[in-house]
Design a protein around this nucleic acid. Structure first.
Lengths: 199, 199, 199, 199
DNA sequence: AATGAATGAGCCTTCATTCAT
DNA sequence: AATGAATGAAGGCTCATTCAT
């Protein structure tokens, strides 16, 4: 029963719940969801196995909470950049800021990102969360750009596409796997594309 | 021991090995790597559980083979499109062809793609294969484009970026999760970007 | 240690202990001993988990107390019927009264009865309590019947057997599982047997 | 899936399945259903834990099979006594035979009987099996008695009641818990009742 | 006397892998 | 080369009991 799950109101409890989520965050990042077991999560969080099930329905429930944290971590900084942008917009500068922040976020979360994305294939709730995240980002950015005077024609498609391109690029850069690629040059290309797209 | 693994020379054996790989391919696609067990793979392949370990070292070894097949399936059709393109190049037409083929490939393999990508996070060999695939595609496409008269400046970066953008778009379209997106319009945008990038 | 178990002398404490026993009574009845957990008992009793172990040694100890209550609930009403019977005895009427009361008791306690009986198999103390209950009933009824002028020959055996037969019948009736049985007719047969037995 | 459960056709397999059931039979008898764990069942059966789940869906499934065996063990001998009785019927002799056989059966199975009966409270399938057993015995005995010339009036009720009385008595005797009871005398009383009931 | 969060042993079950045939 | 029954370690989860407050 979901009703048996503790909704921690005391500070200490919230702290403990967060510790477990944090432990899950780390372990899922390091060795994936299936490479992590509940005993390990408990150990890392510094609690007993049993109490984990005092705070979470099951292992998947921890994942869902980790996902929430992840989404917050990713969404907020990007939203902030958009919010803080004011007229007149320097699209190139804005693009650059978004790229750099996305890279930074990816550096911290790339492995978890992959793990979560793969689980989205089998878990509808996880998938739904991801979709909703993209919705939120696209919507917020679109509105803000229009407000800032960007041509509103097909703005949603443009922004969504821009987001994907930036994501792709950040992923590339972080994993830095292709040594024949000049990532600085590529960044410039990405910037150009974004500028062109939103002009 | 790797030395105990049969290298099937007899026709029948090769056939059987391929059946197992095919079964793995299907099951990993349908329910993911961790949702598949070896008994199920054997059953689907129409062989005994035991013999699976006559052809493969372990479950992961099947995955590696599935990955090879996957890579072939994805690489060849795209390479073919490039090969068959001849002067004078209509970049827009070529871009469109690549997009459509990528979408088609994604439609058939998207779930497996996700599964494999996530495993790449924890399995270096899987990761390496993916990187090598991208290398191959980029390299081949770059050479061909140069041969066809496209401006060779930063061609590798351009092609790689183009690839990523197409991938992103294909993924979006196939999963079609954002109902506020006009995917036809977005495709046009993608085409424009590619044309601009490679002109 | 048994010495750490509080013997509640304060009214409030006794009340609380009884509440726990009552909660145990209900839950053991509803879902059996193994289907009940101590957290649930505490919740139903309106006390904390911890304090349960202030009043009881362990979960089994609660069971023992529930058993005592159960025995009282069953013994007293039957004893009363015997006590209140006076000369001249109408054996048929008495038999009927006992049958009806036994049915009534069974209706309220049949599931707990089963649960307790099964535990008697593995728990000697539980078993002893049951035996002692039957002893008490048999003894009291025998004495009373003799006092009322019933033939004392083998009276203990007769009474004990009569008890068992009534029990059996009550169980049948309450669970009413065999739809081919005319329970009213069977009741008549039981009555006849008892009358014949005690004449 | 039930389809994954091996239906053992090979002799060896049947043997092994029976060994597991036998182990369950013994352990459930000795320490009850909840006092038995699957590792113990496997150990006693001389097999591994895993293979238990090759033959049975889960622990409860073993119970169901044990129940089937139990029912056979109880039903067949009693049915046989009825079958082998021929005209002219000596009801007292028949009653005695049934009593003695019931006692014998109880001696071997009383503890399991209790365990199963208690589980019937929480498990509808177990309960249904018990009811069906009683149905079978009653029906068969009734038919046979009528065939043998016993007065058919209310025969079902009479037989069912007789069964219950014999059961009760057997239970008493086997557990021999009341040392003030002369069980031989009581047996005589039971016989008288049965003779009277069926005359 | 009381709370309820915390503990951790133990349970049922799964599944990659091995082995007797 | 092939079978599929068998193994047993490991995982998720529960719950009687304890303990810090």
């Amino acid at each position: 029963m979901s009703s048996n799950i503790r909704v921690p109101q005391q500070e200490r409890s919230i702290e403990k719940k967060n510790k477990i989520i944090q432990a899950g965050y780390e372990l899922f990042s390091e060795v994936g969801y299936y490479g992590t077991n509940t005993v390990e999560i408990a150990k890392r969080a510094g609690v007993s196995t049993g109490i984990v099930y005092g705070y979470f329905e099951d292992k998947r429930d921890i994942l869902i909470c980790v996902l929430e944290i992840y989404i917050d971590k990713v969404y907020k900084p990007l939203a902030q950049i958009m919010e803080r942008t004011s007229r007149p917009v320097d699209v190139r500068k804005l693009a650059l800021a978004m790229i750099d922040k996305t890279i930074e976020l990816h550096e911290q979360n790339a492995k978890l990102h992959n793990t979560l994305h793969s689980l989205a294939t089998t878990d509808e709730a996880v998938n739904a969360q991801f979709i909703s995240l993209e919705n939120k980002i696209t919507e917020q950015a679109s509105k803000q750009l229009v407000k800032l005077g960007i041509n509103p024609e097909n703005i949603t498609e443009k922004v969504h596409l821009a987001m994907n391109i930036v994501q792709s690029y950040a992923h590339e850069t972080v994993f830095d796997s292709h040594n024949y690629i000049d990532y600085a040059k590529m960044k410039e290309l990405v910037c150009n594309i974004l500028v062109e797209l939103l002009k």
